[in-house]
Amino acid sequence: MLMLGLALLLATAADVPRGVPDDDACVALDERGERYPICFDPGDGFVVGTRMRLSGSAMAQAVRTGVHIRSGRSSRSKGSPWFNNHRLLGLDAWDGEQRGLTFTAYDGTLRRHLEEGFILVPTARPARIPFPFDVTVALRLGHLERRVWEGPGWTLETGRLGLLLDPIRAETERVWFGVGPVAGHAVRRSREGVSHTVAPFTELMFDAGLESRDGLWALRASGLAGWSIGIERGLYFRARTDVGLERVVLAVADQPVVLQLSGAYVHRDAGLARRSEWTANVGLAVRVFGAR
């Protein structure tokens, strides 16, 4: 199913020219001549969803909410476009034997696009060396993980900041692939006390996304691997990756209902005990105000 979706997504993304479709192309007329939207923006909307979560041998029901905002602006200081994705107040909670939740106050990427990237060497007559990458700032603030079944305690990533290079340099907000170093700070509170770790650009992160022109399909993948350093002691290696596929299956009152498939693997970073685990999810979500 995942591969089928990916193939369809790639096919639709490749067939069409870049850019947002015309307003007329995103609206259809019913028999009575009334207009209804047929294009959606996967980066916009208030998302509420439910899903089944499989982790190890444990199956659980989960809910997910969040606010997604996609914006574009032209930089006043540089005169070039920015493609920004903001995700606010993201909550993911699951029940069952391994009850838990994650909450993220803010998670966003801000990509500055240049048609022809370059490095300027400030010689008397400025030299220009080709640099075929867009620069993306990936910022996450206030990511909390609480696992009730592990006992008292929580993990809070106070902040994470990545500087990613995007070799695709798409002129649209629908395609991106950034990879680069990340700095961050996290604190774990458990029965044993509080421990702080920092990653001073010692981790590598990637973030990629591909959406069909009409917004019916969306694929997103991200990953992170590297070392974080304990303030008190210790050096910790961790890695995690996740991939998700979305398909708008219907719209209720013009609000898209989305089928979501996703999977994730975490290596030595899950919960207070820094476990390794994988999860798979399938569910439905409604994205209110998600029409283009």
Binding site: K78, L114, G117, F118, I119, L120, P122, F133
Partner: peptide, 9 residues
């Protein structure tokens, strides 16, 4: 000292 600029940064 600024040693170079990457995409005007």
């Amino acid at each position: 000292v600024i040693i170079l600029a990457i995409n005007d940064q």
